[in-house]
Design a protein around this nucleic acid. Structure first.
Ligand SMILES: [Mn+2]
Ligand SMILES: [Mn+2]
Ligand SMILES: [Zn+2]
Ligand SMILES: [Zn+2]
Lengths: 139, 139
DNA sequence: ACATCCATTAGAATAGTTCTAAATTACCGC
DNA sequence: GCGGTAATTTAGAACTATTCTAATGGATGT
């Protein structure tokens, strides 16, 4: 695929989500949506942008990650206090968290079948289920 | 139950967990372990201490909550980035999080039966399962 | 091209938590 | 009880992730 084709595809992705395809957003989207699922912090995205010699400020990285999240292109995952992971996989899935390595892996929702749920509080409905399997090196 | 009996019970609880029963720790424990399960932030604990006219600095609140957690008297729950909830229920349970009100409710682990788990990474074993049901006012 | 609105940016501000180092307190053996 | 020792408390500074501010720059539609 040509460089121009890739650019146009990304621009279409952003426009389809109601996000203007600026130079900075396209540069970050090119890295985020390269076909490999990622769980990344703002700082990791910023570092990646620097390595690509794309000049994107840290403030713009935060703005962009938040925009993409609102637009449904990313979702947030919170594991530890202290930092937010942005997840390029927006499908229905759960996570394995390696407590020693500090990294996340996706697992399909169907791999953790939940037979039934408790009664929810009066007038409330389910917005999302988060499941995290925390793992460590076997003793 | 007399005030002295209550004090002695709390002191025994702390000593049993390998934590020295200082004045500050006893004051915080008296409020935390009053029989009602709580999900509280450090600031909420500090405010409660002020209302009880116990003079406990914020640094000591953090030290104490972390000590109690290490000693197995509390556990941490992370929901949003930005702040840590300390949970006085250390048993096997999951949570309902009200996204609008920002508060947590306990649910027994048995109320969300998990039929099976995916294969874990080579050499890793399960340390804990976190399940959060996020709810909102029904549309 | 023009006007308008939206995005980008550096740097300051904010918020939750941890760190530092000095003063105080709990504990243990006598 | 008394003294020695190690653990705890504390105020304030430091740290970290994130958001805010306000000024500059860029995209879009006509
Ligand atoms: Mn980071
Ligand atoms: Mn708080
Ligand atoms: Zn994921
Ligand atoms: Zn709980």
């Amino acid at each position: 695929m040509s460089v121009k084709q890739k650019h146009d595809e990304l621009a279409a992705l952003l426009q389809g989500a109601g996000v203007r395809p600026t130079r900075q957003r396209l540069a970050l989207a090119a890295w985020l949506f390269d076909g490999h699922d990622k769980h990344v912090t703002a700082e990791q995205v910023h570092d990646a942008a620097l390595k690509m010699r794309a000049h994107v400020s840290l403030a713009t990285v935060y703005n962009t990650l938040n925009n993409f999240t609102t637009a449904g292109l990313l979702r947030q995952v919170v594991i530890d206090g202290g930092q937010i992971y942005f997840d390029t996989n927006t499908g229905d899935h759960y996570h394995i968290f390696d407590e020693e390595g500090g990294y996340l892996t996706d697992i399909p929702a169907a791999s953790v079948p939940i037979a039934r749920l408790p009664k929810l509080p009066q007038g409330k409905s389910l917005s999302r289920i988060d499941v995290v399997l925390r793992v460590r090196t076997s003793s």
